[in-house]
């Protein structure tokens, strides 16, 4: 039997585009998921939240959608910071979001990262959300509401 983490306490969106964050919030909500959803527009704000959450409660479970191409500090910088801060990949599941085509080398490099559990094209849809839940957390949402 495969081990599944419990549902995430928080779903975090890190994307500089407000419209995308708004759309993703609606999409995640409409997939019936009730974790708290928070959106940040910069790497800095997102990191600040993670640092304070994990320092308050070491075993918080967080699912984070990370836009890889952001102005200034980008998704790569964010992943580097997560490693520097010594976060636990057991508690932090990161799904990379991309708008542009990504080259194979970058893709492989991302998938080797212990936090990264998937790479998806923007924008997210309900099926993608379902898949992420099914693959990373204790059953799909449908299973939870039964």
């Amino acid at each position: 039997m495969e081990y599944f983490k419990p549902k995430p306490d928080y779903v975090i969106l890190v994307d500089d585009c407000i419209a995308t964050n708004f759309l993703h919030q609606l999409t995640i909500m409409s997939s019936g998921h009730h974790s708290e959803i928070l959106a940040f527009e910069t790497v800095h704000e997102g990191m600040e939240f993670l640092e304070s959450k994990f320092s308050q409660q070491k075993d918080s479970s967080i699912l984070l959608f990370l836009d890889i191409n952001m102005p200034g500090l980008n998704g790569w910088d964010f992943l580097a910071e997560c490693k520097n801060d010594g976060f636990d990949p057991e508690n932090l599941v990161i799904i990379i979001l991309t708008a542009a085509a990504m080259n194979k080398d970058d893709e492989n490099l991302l998938l080797e990262n212990p936090f990264v559990k998937g790479i998806l094209p923007k924008p997210l849809d309900v099926d993608m959300i379902e898949n992420i839940w099914a693959n990373n957390f204790s059953g799909s949402f449908q299973a939870q509401i039964k």
């Binding site: 500089d16 585009c17 407000i18 527009e41 910069t42 952001m70 102005p71 200034g72």
Partner: peptide, 8 residues
């Protein structure tokens, strides 16, 4: 397409 600051 490189930008340094959030659109906001």
């Amino acid at each position: 397409f490189y930008r340094l600051h959030p659109r906001s």
